[in-house]
Amino acid sequence: MRYEIRVDGHMSETLTSAFPELDHVMMSGHTVLYGSVIDEAHLYGLLARCRSLGLRVLEMRQLPE
């Protein structure tokens, strides 16, 4: 499964390093984290991580393989 998570604001390098398993790209005031997600548990873990880092998730969607 590949996913992308769009987060409000530009994430610093420190914060993106908290998602070592994902790539990221900055665009127009957002940061998009993307990459493969192992399973649902991983997915919810990523969401929880966003929450614990105070990130505002704007969008999350599955990408075509």
Partner: peptide
């Protein structure tokens, strides 16, 4: 500034 709020402020 456009950085995420927590990140920016904490730094």
């Amino acid at each position: 500034d456009r950085t995420t709020v927590a990140d920016f402020l904490l730094a």
